[in-house]
Design a protein around this nucleic acid. Structure first.
Length: 270
DNA sequence: CTGGGGACGGGGCCC
DNA sequence: AGGGCCCCGTCCCCA
């Protein structure tokens, strides 16, 4: 019996593409995935070792290296703040995975460079003999032009792989191609028509049809179709949960639960 | 309300 | 270079 999540509501259509309205043709995934439907498309994984999932580190929201956007980090203007899913604003260089809790050193450096460049920009009245072929900016000295090219235009030219579906830019074609898959969703489920960006996402989805749960908990009889869900489940067997409130020291199995706890007022009450 | 499960997204690493 | 996989994470739903 299909659960309601299979008809997941996407409140933000801008974030979640409408699979039926993609302007690029979708390609059905290779038939090998369906060669034997009852047999998993991926090799049966070994039962995960409990050691690998025995967390030692206790994180707090203040120490999390990849904590989601805290409340003091509002989205960059121009991007909808009503996104149901909290996601960082597109960075100029998305190939670098900077912690969302801190400014990207790349973009920060770029801003500083921009400021520096505007300081050194020649006055219009001055003779501007040296012109940048890329942006047509003129400089009175060759060193000024050289500096501009090295610090600004050449750097910009290197980020020349732009997504035609959104504003993201990538430094490599491979990174861009992978990103574009999130728009084109070339992996389509033959059973329900749902589309995915990557084959293994489709494989995981197919398990929702087959009921296959290859990831077993070594501590109890539960099994999961998704390794991440097993990882989260293993937290429930741990006395000390991974995520700790920095005020009351209560620990939680998921960061989202810690966030809920903090938002509910624990930290205010203490 | 809280905790947990299900489904899925995306970057990074490895081969 | 590109695909497969891992890991971390989010969102939604339900008990």
């Amino acid at each position: 019996m299909p659960r309601s999540f299979l008809v997941k509501k996407h409140f933000n259509s801008a974030k979640k593409p409408n699979y039926s309205e993609l302007d690029s043709p979708t390609v059905f995934i290779s038939p090998y995935l369906y060669k034997s439907f009852s047999v998993p498309a991926i090799p049966q994984p070994e039962v995960l070792s409990s050691v690998a999932y025995n967390p030692i580190t206790v994180w707090t929201t203040s120490s999390l290296p990849l904590s989601p956007l805290p409340s003091d980090l509002s989205p960059v203007s121009g991007y909808p703040s009503s996104l149901g899913r909290v996601s960082p604003p597109p960075l100029s260089d998305t190939s670098s995975k900077a912690p969302s809790g801190s400014a990207s050193p790349v973009s920060d450096g770029d801003e500083r460079l921009h400021a520096k460049l505007s300081e050194t920009e020649p006055h219009a009245a001055e003779a501007e003999k040296f012109q940048c072929a890329l942006c047509n900016k003129s400089y009175s000295t060759y060193s000024g032009l050289l500096k501009h090219k090295q610090l600004h235009c050449d750097a910009q030219a290197r980020k020349s792989f732009s997504c035609k579906y959104c504003e993201k830019e990538y430094v490599s074609l491979g990174a861009l191609k992978m990103h574009i898959r999130t728009h084109t969703l070339p992996c389509v489920c033959k059973i329900c028509g749902k589309a995915f960006s990557r084959p293994w996402l489709l494989q995981g989805h197919i398990r929702t049809h087959t009921g296959e749960k290859p990831f077993s908990c070594p501590h109890c009889s539960r099994a999961f179709a998704d390794r991440s869900n097993l990882r989260a489940h293993l937290q429930t067997h741990s006395d000390v949960k991974k995520y700790q409130c920095k005020n009351c020291s209560k620990t939680f199995s998921r960061m989202s639960l810690l966030h809920k706890h903090e938002e509910s007022g624990c930290c205010v009450a203490h």
